[in-house]
Design a protein around this nucleic acid. Structure first.
Lengths: 398, 398
DNA sequence: CTCTTTAGTTAGTTGATTTAACGAAATGCA
DNA sequence: TGCATTTCGTTAAATCAACTAACTAAAGAG
């Protein structure tokens, strides 16, 4: 018994309004006439929608753009001045938040480096960071549209519960309710305008959604932190996160990469994380230097151990990329997370494995991007998820 | 520059028509009032749509269903008598075709066991089988809605080209054009009403689409034939095949399952198919009995070799299932293909590996179904894909 | 300075859905 | 048997967002 939204004329208008907004998001600067051509709507309809959106501050009108013959069109862009979106990420060692415009421009950042403890404390951390951002001069006088939150664990498909977050020690937490009830929750936050998602999903969505131009058909974001996770977005009109049946898609850290391999803390053997997880790498390095044989030899031994461990991690990542490629057929792979700072040592071997593979001409490899500056990516992506929800949710937003 | 369909009232009407059809597909026997409640439309709108659909033979009206107080509603079902859909599958060793109703009821089957050779010959085989089906008494007097075709290789996302099909020796074949130009193409086939897809995608879609009741959120179909492939469907309103960027999703036969493992004919090492592919199993069994040491010992040796080979294949399948689970988080896995006839020997170990894994309470295993009767599944699924297209394509179908 | 071309707006029409009211078909109780 | 009740489905009028057609506006070309 699906409860799909009603198919009446207001719904149709909403669809068209969303189409105009998405078009201007991916193709900034289009004129009304160009919007009409791209959307299949008529100039009249587009003109009417644009007028409404200009009034609401959702769009801004640039100056004419002469050059060709005929009356020049006037450039339209998403509005940059009247709204603000918040995005936050709860990490193991701290939390981050950003305030952005409709175009994804970052207005302000905030960070705390206190390790995350209980869900209650984490919720309060988020609201405090949000409060800081809303006091920043750059966000003053703007209408707050909502808050997107990302965290290191899978979330139920309805976006209300954290199913588990091993690195935080959480298990089945109704985090959305905790956020709503948290102290210092901004009073201007519209009711219900909070999204919750896995940090890898949020980052993947941000990468697909915020970049101008044609979005990737299928983007895989691989998050290399203490654990290993992934987020996938597929393009069906606009980018959408692939969640799987219960929000568990992308839990690739415990895919089997080496049958009969090392034991993993999940109770199985040969998981991706046993070679590639931050915790496993740290453990391996500590183990390798436990018994210092010789003061002079130790640094060189340590150096060798590091190379071996990171090389193995790289090969594991390469195998993971190949398998993601074979399973999902992405056209773009983005690698982010703290481990990307070990750049060459891990990513070099990984890309070697990935690109050494034989690809058929009809099945070329995906474009692989490494984001060494991925610190705010999940928070930014969470804000983008909220923006998408605001655009796609049928309702007259003021 | 996306060329999305226009957002006018006819489009809205189409959406609502499709919603009614899909509702009656998943929930046969609903009344107009119940349809209104489930769809969010009003009784008036539903009544108007239903009248049109009844006139066109898309729906049939059953008798009233008394029992409760008040005027009883009249049961509605998808029409079974006025339309026919064709589905065909091109396999390595032969081809199969089915004729079905709107509900997926099989009206007639046809098969040929001549091994597939060239694309031209295969196209003609399909049209010949279709001709046979259309001469069957069960399909007489019905309007032909279209033809869905499935084959063992990935297809370009626009459904026109076969990117490659190693088991057929095909490479980048514009098969849709060949079909359109094939001799004996049924004259009553509407222009453009042909779909083309990978057999695993088709089978996955059929499993998700034709079963009454709520469809699975994410279904993975694993096809165990000469090669190993997979098809995925995700529920977004109705089931949709996940194709990846270029139609390459599901090419799991060459995912790496054992780093440094056996060499694969794809040029890489440790692919799934080196242990689980039909060709690899056959090769392993032949190799193992190449040198008959002793007439008396040979049968027992052979038996042992079979057990070892199939056991390894089963473990490989188990690992594959685990990795699909971790990557996509399906709620349902269906296993089909010729190898399912080796039931216990392969599937036993596979399910052992899958279920021996530690699952978190919030992340239970998927329901696993083995289809030993999967011979006509891809053909049936291809017909279902065509049906979905007929329902979802905006146009007034006669 | 007029002509041509393209951009955007105004006026009136179309069409699908809506609300409101009505007729139809069953059960249930006097 | 008869009448009230309940729910189903239809008819009639209203709404609303798109459309077509025709206009004005703003640039470049000759």
């Amino acid at each position: 018994m699906p409860t799909t939204p009603g198919g009446d004329q207001p719904y149709l208008k909403h669809l068209n309004r969303a189409r105009v907004l998405h078009l201007l998001r991916t193709h900034p600067g289009l004129s009304r006439a160009e919007l009409a051509a791209h959307s299949g709507l008529t100039k009249v309809t587009v003109g009417s929608l644009v007028t409404t959106l200009l009034d609401g501050g959702w769009l801004s009108e640039g100056h004419a753009r002469p050059g060709a013959t005929g009356r020049p069109g006037r450039e339209l862009h998403l509005g940059e001045t009247q709204h603000v979106l918040l995005g936050a990420e709860i990490g193991v060692l701290g939390a981050r938040a950003v305030a952005t415009t409709l175009r994804g421009t970052v207005l302000a950042r905030a960070e705390t480096r206190t390790p995350t403890t209980t869900p209650h404390a984490a919720a309060h951390t988020v609201t405090r960071l949000c409060g800081q951002l809303l006091q920043d001069p750059a966000t003053q006088g703007r209408e707050l549209l909502g808050l997107g939150v990302a965290l290191p664990g899978p979330v139920s498909p309805d976006g209300t519960r954290v199913l588990y977050a091993p690195n935080l020690g959480w298990d089945d937490v109704p985090f959305l309710d905790l956020l709503r009830a948290a102290p210092d929750l901004p009073a201007t936050l519209p009711a219900g305008a909070i999204t919750l998602d896995n940090e890898a999903n949020a980052a993947a969505f941000g990468e697909s959604f915020l970049r101008p131009g044609e979005p990737p058909q299928l983007l895989a974001y691989v998050s290399l932190g203490s654990g290993v996770g992934a987020g996938f977005t597929a393009l069906s009109g606009t980018p959408h996160v692939l969640r799987g049946a219960r929000g568990l898609a992308g839990e690739i850290g415990h895919a089997i990469i080496q049958p009969g391999g090392l034991y993993c803390h999940c109770g199985n053997r040969g998981c991706v994380e046993t070679l590639l997880g931050g915790w496993a790498i740290r453990a391996a390095l500590n183990l390798n230097v436990l018994d210092p044989l010789d003061e002079a030899l130790a640094p060189r031994l340590r150096e060798a151990a590091v190379q071996v461990t990171l090389g193995r991690a790289g090969e594991a990542l390469g195998q993971l990329l190949v398998n993601l490629h074979q399973t999902l057929g992405p056209d773009e792979i983005v690698i982010g997370g703290a481990l990307t700072r070990l750049d060459g040592a891990v990513l070099g071997p990984a890309l070697d494995v990935y690109h050494a593979r034989q690809w058929r001409p009809a099945a070329p490899p995906a474009r692989v991007t490494v984001r060494t500056d991925s610190l705010y990516l999940p928070a930014l992506g969470a804000a983008a998820q909220l923006l998408a929800r605001v655009i796609d949710t049928p309702q007259e937003p003021a």
